[in-house]
Amino acid sequence: MGRENSKNVWVFIEVYDNKIRNVSLELLGQGRVIADQLGEKLVGVVIGDNIAGLANEVIAYGAETAIVVSGNEYKDYSTDGFANALTALVKKYAPSVLLIGATRNGKDLAPRVAGRLETGLIADCTDIEVNSEDRLVEWTKPAGNMMSTSICPDSSPQMGTVRSNVFKKPAPDYNRAGEIVAEDIGTKADDIRTKIVEIIKTVQGETVNLEEAEIIVSGGRGMKGPENFAILKELADILGGSVGASRAAVDADWMPYAHQVGQTGKTVKPKIYLACGISGAIQHLAGMSSSDLIIAINKDPEAPIFNVADFGIVGDLFEVVPLLTKEFRRIKNG
């Protein structure tokens, strides 16, 4: 779509288990910043079934307008249904910017929509700003060992996906006034070519929610083998945290992929990130360098992880970690 007359910053509000995903709320926060820089409005788009209650939340988190598309055909996420509804809305209202959370479903939807609209899409952005001169959105993300900033100068909307934990969730204000617009966009049953027939909850132990963990104890190739992750688990348990891993550890099958931190894993922002036997490759840093406190244990004094660590111990993790656990256990038991 062309750029003429396009206006307003849109956030696709993803609903999962009848709740708005955190990443969508975080995007309302940054969307507000961008909308103010452009002097435009912030709009949240909610698609689902029985979701009327969520519109107020979209406004509380900073939008002027919530557009709500509801219908039984949107009860479950489907590429065809959601792409149809979202592109129809974009064609009707012509937003200038469209932000989508880089979740599994968000990354399924965004490229399909950008393809249909023949517009650019930048994946997994870590920063989004407006250039005051040309008023274009600048999308920044890691690219190899560098960072790149891209623009989408000729087509509209300017689209990007963003992971959770990149931006801060704003504080909601439930007294904010806003407009709720119901849009009726039907999708014919036949046009939805996929159907969820079964949902199998992940078994094997607890689900990992690294994105929300306040403390993460992560291990890398220095852990030497899968069995040694038990010492990290013990430390994490004492601290009430979760266990993360580098890609080297995941590739070696020492830990499941859901634990991977970094460019191709999770982006995390805990209060404390403890890296054990992790060298600190740029792709790993891309997923954890905005943690409040970074602590590194590595026997190589030259390991790049020490360049970002607030507190580094040059030493053998197999000595240090058990001692740490012992010390914290002592503190905990008073």
Binding site: E118, T119, G120, L121, I122, E138, P142, A143, M146, M147, S148, T149, S150, I151, C152, P153, D154, S155, I282, L285, A286, S289, I294, P301, F306, N307, V308, A309, D310, F311, G312, I313, V314, G315
Partner: peptide, 21 residues
């Protein structure tokens, strides 16, 4: 391409802190 790369730059360095050796 709709997306144009405007610039490439080195990632901001987060200063190193205390190191116990």
């Amino acid at each position: 391409s709709a997306v144009k790369v405007k610039k490439m730059f080195a990632p901001p360095v987060r200063g190193a802190g205390i190191k116990i050796e």
